[in-house]
């Protein structure tokens, strides 16, 4: 098992496979996102409380999910990279950070656009929105920390440590914000009851989430390839690869 894993994460192998997987993922992602768009915008019935505004859920929830999934994935990669010294895992963590930040930003934007008609305000101090905002700040901090180092090896280590600090802190932040939110919740009147999701509303959401995850996988793999090339530029496989593609041979 460990040997298999080692072989799989060896940079040349990952580089080669990443291309193929990225294409497959991208195809599947586009297909499922398109179907889910059709399902969510056309087939699903309007919510009896929120009307058509509830359809924002089909982009809001998948991006919220991805923002957290990406962080968990980045932290997992950082952990693997620190403990077993896989250089490829550092490359993966590097490329995920900006992607995760974009998903977090999308989640905040769509949440705000959903909040305006439902709550009557662009920003409500809702627990999920608040912890999502903190998550965005942590992503930005991670990127800033990485940029502050001249040397890649140092940046990798420091950023990995920071990602792991975040893993311990994010649940604490999340629950404290929830607790804080329930204490003052009485004051706000929200039009959102617990939306009980029926199957014909639910399947596009599920499919959209899967599509977003596949898309995330595809672009992460694509960006990782570049990162691997840049990090491994001294190795033989990169030299050969660059030579072949330049037609030098």
């Amino acid at each position: 098992m460990k040997k298999w894993f080692h072989q799989w994460v060896s940079p040349p192998h990952l580089y080669e496979r990443a291309d193929r997987y990225a294409k497959v993922f991208l195809f599947l992602a586009i297909a499922s996102i398109l179907v889910a768009l059709y399902g969510g915008l056309v087939l699903a019935p309007a919510d009896y409380q929120q009307g058509d505004a509830f359809r924002i859920i089909y982009v809001h929830v998948p991006s919220a999910w991805l923002s957290m999934f990406a962080y968990a994935f980045m932290a997992g990669a950082s952990f693997v990279a620190l403990v077993w010294r896989f250089s490829a895992a550092h490359a993966v963590a590097t490329v995920i950070a900006p992607i995760g930040a974009v998903f977090t930003l999308l989640c905040l934007l769509t949440g705000s656009l959903w909040g305006k008609p439902m709550w009557g305000t662009w920003w409500e101090w809702d627990a999920r929105m608040t912890s999502e905002l903190v998550l965005l700040l942590i992503y930005l901090g991670y990127i800033a920390l990485r940029l502050s180092f001249e040397e890649q090896a140092k940046a990798d280590k420091a950023a990995a440590i920071f990602a792991l600090i975040g893993v311990v802190n994010l649940p604490i932040i999340h629950y404290s914000v929830y607790w804080w939110n329930t204490l003052h919740q009485g004051a706000t009147v929200s039009k959102i009851g617990k939306p009980s999701i029926t199957w014909d509303m639910g399947w596009p959401l599920l499919l959209m989430t899967i599509g977003f995850m596949l898309f995330f996988g595809a672009i992460t793999l694509m960006a990782t390839r570049g990162e691997l090339l840049s990090r491994e530029r001294r190795t033989k496989w990169v030299k050969e690869l660059v030579d072949i593609n330049r037609g030098v041979n």
Partner: peptide, 10 residues
């Protein structure tokens, strides 16, 4: 406005 701009942004 809200629905289409959400989907548009995404």
């Amino acid at each position: 406005f809200y629905v289409w701009s959400s989907f548009g942004f995404s």
